[in-house]
Simulated assay, not measured.
Amino acid sequence: MTGLQDPLALDSASRAVAEAAAMAVPYKLAEAYARRDIDSLLALFANISEVTWIGTGADERRVGREELRCQFERNLEQSEVLLFRFEWVRASATPTAGWVMAEGSMFAAVAGENIDVPVRLTAVVVEEDGEWRVVQAHLSCPATGQAAGESFPTLFEQMADAVRRERPDLLQHTSPDGTVTILFTDIEGSTAVTETLGDRVWMEVLREHNEIIRELTREFEGYEVKSSGDGFMLAFGSARRALLCAIEMQRAFARRNALKPEVTIRICIGLHTGEAIREADDFFGKNVILAARIADMAQGDEILVSSLVRALTESTGDFRFGEERRVELKGLQGLHRVYGVTWN
């Protein structure tokens, strides 16, 4: 019969049109943010009471159009520039409903600082008054400190990722040549120790550990950037002072363990030096991660340093370094040279 079309072909065509419309949603969001147009942002969302936006912040669960408006206004008020670049977008849809997911990056100029981070967007969309509108959306920043192939970040990776997002001001802690030495510490086997001792005793051990770390950090003019559970990230304006501090930490815990052999504390330490001024935009994304990866490789009672730390400190004659090790560090290309430091 002429004039009739295959229903399956019609269904496929309508789905293709719907999916193309759904895939346009992330780009419309990016355009509205680039134009800093609150009304255009809100127009992308369904006119229902339970319309929801979940963002990256701890308080960013917004339900209802007024809460969404407040969130979008806050985002624009706190940024001079806010741009999204979506490079990977997928969608699945019927003629009336669907979902879309996208990956890309977010660039923001905030208080004179530039932030460029990866982002992911997922959204449920529906057809409303001839337009595709969002019912629920979730914007997130993946944990960049978590290595590819790993389901969970290590303690050092968690701290490094938090610092990368927060970007604390370390310029007052730089050396005259603009470098900062990052030192990470962690207690070896802390999870097993906690289970053995119980929470109450473990908290007492942890307080003792923290007091030693903080006292020596002050003594060697370091700065506590971040602490998390049983780990610390510290910054020093001198690679020599940082390494002397690391050695004194190991010696302090050795003395403590000799007095309390029933509950020993064995710490792992890793150090790396980076140029915080010349490489300001990349310092938190490269140098901090490298220091964290080196610390991840250290065993209990061990200090590991990068080749740069060794180069900056060996001429003083204060330190003895072990043999060079060429190692792969998770998430970083190539082989990296690290050295153990003798402290006992």
Rank of each mutant, 00 (worst) to 15 (best):
P95K: 08
M106S: 11
A108D: 05
A91P: 01
E50R: 13
D11Q: 11
L41A: 02
G98H: 10
E31V: 02
D11F: 03
F45H: 08
L44R: 01
P7M: 03
V81S: 12
V110I: 15
E77C: 00
A16W: 07
R74H: 13
A97H: 10
E66W: 02
N75C: 06
A21M: 14
E87R: 12
W53P: 01
R62C: 14
E80Q: 14
A22E: 05
E127W: 01
G98R: 08
V25K: 05
V89N: 03
A46T: 07
G55P: 07
G112V: 01
V110R: 15
W88T: 12
G57E: 13
A108F: 08
E127F: 00
A58K: 14
A109D: 04
L8I: 13
V17P: 00
L10V: 11
D39H: 08
V126Y: 05
E128M: 03
L121V: 04
V126F: 05
E67H: 11
V63I: 15
L10K: 10
W99H: 14
A24F: 05
M23A: 13
A97I: 06
A102N: 08
E80A: 12
A111W: 12
D11E: 15
L4I: 15
G98N: 12
A91Q: 03
F45C: 06
F107I: 09
A93M: 09
A123E: 03
A22F: 04
A43S: 13
L121W: 01
A21Q: 13
E67F: 07
S40N: 08
L41Q: 07
D11G: 02
D37W: 03
S92F: 09
W99C: 14
S12W: 06
A108G: 02
E77H: 10
Y27F: 11
D37F: 09
L83W: 00
F86A: 03
E128L: 00
A30W: 02
L4Y: 13
R65E: 01
I48W: 00
A16E: 09
A9C: 04
V117K: 11
R69A: 11
T56H: 03
S14H: 08
A21F: 06
P95E: 06
I48M: 04
R120F: 02
R74F: 08
R69S: 05
T94L: 06
E60D: 13
V25D: 06
A20M: 09
